[in-house]
Design a protein around this nucleic acid. Structure first.
Lengths: 227, 227
DNA sequence: CTAATAGTGTCTTTTAGACAATATATC
DNA sequence: GATATATTGTCTAAAAGACACTATTAG
């Protein structure tokens, strides 16, 4: 049997949030020696001694680099090879693959003291410059997934805090998809398909008619309609 | 810095074909010492010395275990953890992750002498029994993907040899989805969305009207309609 | 009353799906 | 002509989308 060559397993998360009415992604300074302090996706190398699963790595790196605790995330895609399709080199140090994740949080979660102390930075999509390794490629795949319409998903809903109004949810979809969806049609479809459930309380605000509050129905992750 | 624990990278491919009007998957006897000769998904461990990318591993294992050469495949999902959601243990030897792929081939490709000599076996979905590791879980995710309707994909088309008639393509979709799609509507949608392109020749067969032949349009991988 | 947002009703247009009709070949 | 498959046409039902209308609060 020939000598077996180790392959390192990286885990990188594209952390999205909605701020000032625009999508942003969060970047953290690298902690490893190589390219230390360069701004990059939140990530870590998987360690067989410490991590039981890939999700463990995601949770740990979100905790360590962004001070986050209970975050919604899902697997995006796994990347490999020496160069990315966009021509950028991946990790030149050793053979490796990268399992990428998408995470979504309300912006408040990223404004904690711990997040700021760690140097976490929010950038509007348009302002994300050149990132190390194949991170630009990963970001672009993540954006496509987030905007992927074919089947709607509850994904954008995770950018809101748990209790939201229909208008707020509508707004998030408008921002993420970059197009206005009629409020009447939006409400009907979202309710018909059980994407959200009422939290059973009206809320009064200054000056206006009270609103019903909703939360995501975690039993439904995609609804088979298009916009 | 603590001791870093190596994580092995497996690559497994769910190899689909259509035989006797039913979907089958191909299993190969394991070549590694552990669980040697048990029937399992076509796969291999990624070796940093030999493989530049995950796709290299897929191609190499399809070649070595099924005698296949130019096969359509795409990434499915990456699995990790000590136990699968179905309760079955994953690899107990060492920390590992598995990057799973789906491949689709016309059945003729699997009836080569080399494939048979290597012990490659075709099983109808219903007859796939208990597989080693988390392979049953991987198979079930693969089937969901293949049947995933929301947006149509060209996926099932790869079960056919390059030049096919509209009826043959229609048939494959019927078999894969398990439901009859009206031939008139099928033809229209597939053509309107450019999923296939005419290969520009009519073909005569015994006794009947000649047929136009088509091939998949590799620029189109999903068309945004539902059935 | 007005202002402002919440929520409903209804019409139009598009698309899916069923199914009938016609076309082109062999025998 | 009969038979078999290929291809097109048309109608119906369902869904998407536009937009006007009503409702409920504060002031």
């Amino acid at each position: 049997m020939q000598e077996y060559g180790e392959v390192k397993v990286n885990v990188d998360t594209v952390l999205f949030t909605l701020k000032d009415d625009r999508l942003h992604i969060a970047l953290a300074p690298r902690s490893a020696e190589f390219k230390k302090d360069e701004m990059a996706l939140v990530g870590a190398m998987m360690d067989g001694n410490r991590h039981k699963s890939l999700e463990d790595v995601v949770r740990q790196s979100l905790k360590d680099k962004a001070g986050l605790d209970k975050v919604y995330f899902e697997q995006l895609q796994t990347f490999s090879g020496t160069t990315s399709p966009d021509g950028r080199p991946r990790d030149i140090r050793w053979p490796s693959i990268t399992v990428a994740y998408i995470a979504l949080v309300p912006v408040e979660a990223l404004q904690s003291k711990s997040a700021i102390e760690r140097g976490l930075t929010l950038l509007p999509l348009a302002d994300v410059g050149e990132l190390p390794f194949d991170h630009n490629r990963i970001v672009s795949v993540a954006i496509s997934r987030l905007r992927g319409k074919g089947a709607w998903s509850t994904l954008p809903g995770h950018l809101l805090k748990p209790n939201f109004t229909m208008s707020e949810l509508n707004d998030v979809y408008n921002k993420v998809l970059g197009q206005k969806i009629d409020k009447a049609n939006f409400r009907r479809k979202v309710l018909e398909h059980g994407m959200v459930v009422s939290v059973g309380q009206k809320v009064w605000r200054e000056g206006y008619r009270p609103v019903e509050h909703f939360k995501l129905n975690d039993k439904v992750s995609t609804i088979d309609i298009r916009l």
